[in-house]
Design a protein around this nucleic acid. Structure first.
Lengths: 166, 166
DNA sequence: ACGAAAAACTGCGATATCGTAGTACCATGG
DNA sequence: CCATGGTACTACGATATCGCAGTTTTTCGT
């Protein structure tokens, strides 16, 4: 998975790009890459990557969900979700049951094996989570708050057609 | 690229997962997906996706950089960077020049065409950035601050071998 | 109740990501 | 100055992502 060094490279190379005056979006990108790298490497032994763990977590929290709902959750295109489901099902980690409300659709549920896989991954995840929380210390809640704010702003923009100025 | 709706799905479905008591990492994941979706859709007409735009931006800020440095920057494995470079070069957007300090390596530079492409993408990006900043309002600096904090914590953990407890 | 439009999903194919393993080069010790 | 080990990069191959276009079912207007 490759453990990388630091964002501030070597001595002086591209380090002159100071974070303070960089775009929020760019920082999200950077943060996200760092998170992915860390989480993926932590979860690797459990055979799940970060995305998969996140999805399994959603499936754990929400007893059952449709592909479309999942797609909205993770802001992913339906085809991607479709192949996720296929993959998870092949692993025996999720199963589909007919959606009583809509014949075109179905609902996804973790199987016991899926729950077990999630628990195994969680066991690796928790210590990391703890370290992150410790690292954040009291600022933890501010960070969470900030992410929340940011996400709601993003969502609002995402769902506003380009032309529509309020 | 698919424009999705909202994180809080429909009426009541998986909405019972309240953000407040969700993991920071998970929120980063969610935020990152939303960001990717938004940025990709905004930049699409310019023929760059978010990742590419970010890299072009780094290359704009840092006059030249080696693949390894770039890999550290974006916390990506070297093979990924390698194929990025190949792709960008094929587009005529970057060029390699020999690294005087190291014969195994080389330095990457945006070509004029590459700079042009970046500028074109930036033209689409700026309005979005503005909307995000407006949406954040005075909380903008806190959000930036939070991301900064988070990233430094993540980096520190990432670079600490699993066993090494301080 | 019917037909048109929209929505949920998927097969397929193009492209992207990234692990494995290999090559070229540098650095260190003796 | 050579050997040994480490580092920078990449070819190749496996798998993942996701757009396009098509099918099935639902929704809505009349």
């Amino acid at each position: 998975m490759v453990r990388q060094r630091s964002t501030s490279v070597k001595g002086l190379t591209p380090a002159d790009v100071r974070d303070e005056d960089v775009d929020v979006t760019f920082m999200v990108w950077l943060t996200s890459r760092a998170t992915t790298d860390l989480v993926d490497s932590v979860l690797a032994p459990a055979g799940l990557d970060g995305d998969e763990f996140a999805i399994y977590s959603v499936l754990t929290a929400a007893p059952s969900i449709t592909p479309t709902e999942l797609a909205r959750w993770m802001a992913a295109p339906p085809t991607t979700v479709s192949s996720y489901v296929k993959r998870f099902e092949a692993r025996g980690h999720v199963e589909r049951e007919p959606n009583p409300d809509d014949g075109r659709s179905y609902r996804i549920k973790l199987t016991p094996a899926g729950r077990r896989a999630h628990r195994a991954a969680a066991k690796l995840f928790i210590p990391m989570r703890t370290r992150v929380e410790e690292g954040l210390g009291p600022r933890g809640s501010e960070v969470r708050e900030a992410l929340l704010t940011l996400r709601s702003v993003l969502d609002e923009i995402r769902h506003t057609p380009p032309g529509a100025l309020e």
